[in-house]
Amino acid sequence: MSSDQAIGSGTRRVIELALALGCFAIATSEFALVGLMSNLAQELGFTFQQVGQLVSSYAVGVVVGAPAMVLLGAAWPRRKAMLVLLLLCIAGNGAFALCSGYWELMAARFVAGLPHGAFFGMASVVAASFAAPNERARAISRVMAGVTLAILIGTPFAAWFGEVAHWRAVYWSITALGVAACVALALVLPAQSGRAGPSARQEFRAFNIPAVWLALAVAAIGFIGTFAVFSFLAPVLQHVARGPSAAMPLLLALFGLGAFLGNLVGGWGYDRLNKTAIVLSLSFNLVALLAFPFLAQTVPLLGLGMFLVGATVALSPILQAHLIEAAPAAANLAASSNHAAFNIANALGPWLGGLAIGQGLGLVAPAYVGVAAAACALALCVQGIGFGQAGNRFRSRKVS
Rank of each mutant, 00 (worst) to 15 (best):
L185G: 07
C182Y: 04
A74I: 07
G65A: 09
I26G: 00
H116A: 11
A253W: 06
A335T: 10
L282W: 03
S173M: 14
F294E: 08
L233V: 15
R12Q: 15
A206I: 09
G243S: 10
M144D: 07
A123I: 05
N39Q: 15
A74L: 10
L185H: 06
K80Q: 13
I209M: 01
N93Y: 08
E16C: 05
H166Y: 12
F110L: 15
L280E: 00
A334G: 07
T11F: 03
Q192T: 13
A66P: 03
K275S: 04
W351Q: 03
N274W: 12
A215P: 02
S337W: 04
N263E: 03
C381P: 00
R136N: 05
L261T: 15
I357S: 06
C182R: 01
V60E: 10
A20P: 07
L177D: 01
A75F: 02
G266T: 08
C376R: 02
A97Q: 04
I324R: 10
L290H: 02
A25N: 04
G121Q: 05
V309M: 08
P156V: 13
A66T: 06
A335L: 06
P366Y: 07
V60Q: 11
S124L: 06
A340P: 00
G310V: 05
L17I: 14
A217D: 00
F110W: 05
G258A: 09
L185D: 07
F48W: 00
V126D: 06
G262S: 10
A6W: 05
Q389V: 09
D271L: 04
C182F: 13
N274L: 14
A277R: 01
G303R: 01
A108F: 04
G384S: 12
P249H: 02
A335I: 04
G243R: 01
V63L: 07
G178I: 11
F232A: 03
G113A: 04
L282Q: 05
L319Y: 10
L44F: 14
Q389G: 11
A314W: 01
A327K: 04
I151T: 12
G267W: 10
Q389R: 13
G154S: 08
G310I: 07
R109E: 10
F292R: 04
A75Y: 01
P190T: 15
H339V: 13
A329C: 03
I278C: 08
A112S: 14
E30W: 04
S396T: 15
V265F: 11
P67M: 12
Q383K: 12
T155W: 01
N134A: 14
S396K: 08
L40D: 11
N93H: 14
A131T: 11
F130L: 14
A108T: 13
S337D: 01
L264Q: 15
H322R: 14
L348W: 02
A131Q: 03
Q297N: 09
V279T: 14
G65L: 09
G391N: 04
A296D: 05
I153V: 15
H322P: 00
S141D: 08
A219Y: 03
W160E: 11
A277M: 09
L72S: 12
A6S: 15
A127C: 08
G94C: 07
G113S: 06
S337R: 06
G197Q: 03
L189Q: 08
A246F: 01
A327H: 08
V183D: 00
P133S: 11
H339W: 02
F96W: 01
P328I: 13
I15N: 00
C99Q: 14
L254E: 05
G269R: 08
I209W: 00
W76V: 08
G117V: 09
A211R: 11
